[in-house]
Computed example of a mutant assay.
Amino acid sequence: MQRIPARLPGTASEQAGKADACAGCPNQQLCATAPKGPDPDIAVIRDRLATVRRKILVLSGKGGVGNSTFTGQLAFSPAAVPDHALQVGVVDVDICGPSIPRVMGVEGERVHQAMTGWQPVYADDNLAVMSVGFLLRESADAVIWRGPKKNGLIKQFLKDVDWGELDYLLVDTPPGTSDEHLSLVQYLRDAGVDGALVVTTPQEVALADVRKELNFCKKVGLRVLGVAENMAGFVCPNCKGASEIFPATSGGARRMADEFGVPFLGSVPLDPLIGKSCDHGESFVEKYPESPASTAFMAIVQALREQIERT
Rank of each mutant, 00 (worst) to 15 (best):
P120M: 06
K155T: 12
N126D: 11
Y122H: 13
L136D: 04
D125G: 12
R146E: 02
R146W: 03
L158Y: 05
L153C: 01
L135F: 12
D160L: 05
E107K: 12
G105Q: 03
D141F: 04
L153P: 02
H112K: 09
Q156M: 09
G133Q: 00
Q113E: 15
D141Q: 12
L135S: 09
A114V: 13
G117Y: 09
M104R: 05
E138Y: 08
V106C: 02
G147E: 09
S131M: 11
N151Q: 14
I144E: 12
K155H: 06
A123T: 03
W118I: 07
G117H: 10
V103D: 07
M104F: 03
Y122A: 05
G108R: 11
V143Q: 08
S131G: 08
M130L: 08
W118Q: 09
F134H: 01
G108M: 10
K149P: 01
R146K: 05
D141A: 09
K159F: 00
H112R: 15
L127P: 05
W118L: 15
G133T: 02
D124V: 02
A128N: 06
K159V: 00
L158M: 04
K155S: 13
I144Y: 01
I154K: 06
S131H: 09
G105C: 02
M130F: 10
E138H: 14
M115V: 15
L127C: 04
A128V: 03
V129Q: 01
E138I: 13
T116G: 10
G152N: 03
S139I: 14
Q119N: 04
V129C: 10
G108C: 12
V121W: 08
Q119A: 03
A140G: 09
R146G: 05
E107L: 14
D141M: 08
G133K: 00
W118H: 12
S139W: 04
I154H: 04
R110N: 02
D125I: 13
K150F: 05
A142T: 13
A142Q: 08
G133E: 01
I144R: 10
K150C: 00
E107G: 05
V129H: 02
L153R: 04
K159D: 01
D125M: 13
L136N: 01
M130N: 09
G105R: 06
A140V: 14
P148W: 07
V121E: 04
I144M: 11
V106E: 03
V111C: 01
G117E: 06
Q119M: 07
G152L: 07
I154L: 10
K155I: 05
T116E: 12
D160K: 07
V132S: 06
R137L: 14
V132M: 15
Y122W: 08
I144C: 09
E107Y: 04
N151K: 09
M104I: 13
L136G: 00
A123D: 01
E107T: 03
A142C: 14
A140Y: 14
L136V: 07
Q113M: 15
V103S: 05
M115R: 11
F134S: 03
V121I: 10
D124P: 05
